[in-house]
């Protein structure tokens, strides 16, 4: 069984020059974990997900390693978070895209995709060999549904 058998073909994607605000709206409206980000030729650039959206508003030093035990000392100023988001809303999503995200090919065995799900807890884009064009997305739900024999659900 390969990834091609369980992937959702032609998934929803955003272009790298779309705004962060538009990409965020897409994620929120459809409760996506991640959205693939592609260039003008449809090649995968990376993923932009809900964690990438939230990480834009948290000091970067607080999300790398265990350098800060907590951020409670910043207090509870939600208007400040909204103000920060407003300053980022019109920036291109390429600024926040996760370029290190794992990717698989249509012929990648399912077990390898499952290993990546277990390690990264993220949906995975499926790209074409050689061109890196986005051809599908697979989620841990797709893998789980296949294994327990449940019918295929809505796209990730």
């Amino acid at each position: 069984m390969s990834c091609a058998n369980i992937m959702t073909p032609n998934p929803k994607a955003v272009r790298e020059d779309d705004t962060i605000g538009a990409a965020a709206r897409e994620i929120i409206d459809h409760t996506y974990i991640n959205l693939p980000v592609v260039d003008a030729e449809g090649r995968l650039v990376g993923l932009f997900g809900v964690y990438d959206l939230l990480a834009l508003l948290v000091p970067r030093v607080a999300v790398i390693g265990n350098l800060l035990p907590n951020l409670r000392f910043l207090g509870d100023d939600d208007t400040e978070l909204q103000r920060k988001f407003a300053t980022l809303r019109d920036s291109p999503v390429r600024r926040a895209v996760n370029r290190e995200a794992a990717r698989v090919y249509p012929d990648t065995p399912l077990i390898e995709a499952m290993r990546l799900f277990c390690r990264n807890h993220m949906t995975i884009p499926v790209v074409e060999h050689g061109t890196d064009k986005l051809v599908g997305m697979i989620s841990y739900w797709d893998a789980a549904r296949y294994i327990v024999g449940a019918p295929k659900g809505p796209p990730p």
Binding site: P69, N70, R72, F73, L74, G75, D77
Partner: peptide, 8 residues
């Protein structure tokens, strides 16, 4: 000034 130092 509004940071809550004890919460660190």
């Amino acid at each position: 000034m509004a940071m809550i130092a004890p919460d660190a």
